[in-house]
């Protein structure tokens, strides 16, 4: 069963890589650093710093086509409810178009409900989130639902030094005056647990943005995340 799961996931990953290379017009990479602190009790706190790198084709000098599209910092708090459920809220600030003449910004307020279930070592996480994206140009309300599925690749427990696989699908709905846009994001990743408090995860995300319009946009990007929790 473990080998079948691995083979299917690697096959999907290889297809994703081929599509990414075929497109080669835009390469995106989002590195992320996530710090989580859980003191005694039901509260947990998270600070995440991330950014988006974009490499654009059409330039012989590859280094000149590199750009940081945005960097962002996020603070989040969750409160554990009974039976694997939790509620939470947070704030994010995004600094966009860093090296443009006029950089942009976004304040984001987030509210969340999540519940996690286990079947042996396999974990299913449902995350429902509401966001208010406040920009200079106006405010966008966005609703998100993400289903994640992760499992250790060795045995029934994720021990230090072992790897795991994670798959997720997220549906997003953005609404504002004259805007109603649905996006979908699929993520396939692999992670390594260096210890019970540190892990590195990387994978490919396939986004279809504005899929309910006449001009949907397909985007592939690499996401790399480093998690530290105390």
């Amino acid at each position: 069963m473990c080998c079948i799961r691995t083979a299917v996931t690697l096959f999907f990953l290889s297809l994703s890589c081929q599509h990414l290379l075929a497109q080669s017009t835009v390469l995106r990479w989002e590195p992320e650093l996530s710090l989580t602190w859980k003191p005694e009790g039901r509260w947990a706190y998270n600070a995440t710093f991330s950014g988006r790198n974009i490499w654009k084709d059409g330039s012989e000098d590859f280094s000149n086509s590199y750009n940081w599209a945005h960097v962002e910092g996020r603070l989040f708090a969750t409160y554990e409810l009974f039976g694997g459920n939790s509620v939470g809220g947070g704030y994010q600030y995004r600094w966009a178009d860093l090296f443009e003449e006029q950089s942009g910004y976004e304040h984001r307020l987030m509210q969340q409900y999540a519940f996690i279930t286990f079947t042996e070592a396999r974990r299913f996480a449902h995350r429902i989130r509401s966001e208010q994206r406040i920009r200079d140009s106006g405010t966008i309300q966005r609703f998100r639902y993400r289903l994640s599925y992760d499992f250790p690749l060795e045995g029934q427990q994720l021990d230090p030094g072992e790897a795991y696989m994670i798959l997720s699908n997220e549906v997003l709905w953005s609404v504002a005056r004259d805007l109603s846009e649905i996006d979908n994001r699929v993520f396939v990743g692999i992670g390594w647990a260096f210890s019970r408090k540190r892990k590195l995860e990387t994978g490919l995300q396939f986004r279809v943005e504005a899929l309910n319009t006449n001009e949907p946009e397909n985007i592939f990007q690499l996401i790399t995340s480093y998690f530290i929790n105390r």
């Binding site: 998270n46 994720l158 995340s225 998690f227």
Partner: peptide, 10 residues
């Protein structure tokens, strides 16, 4: 003891 949910919650 469950593995940390930081990669699925945040």
């Amino acid at each position: 003891e469950r593995r940390s949910p930081d990669n699925v919650l945040y």
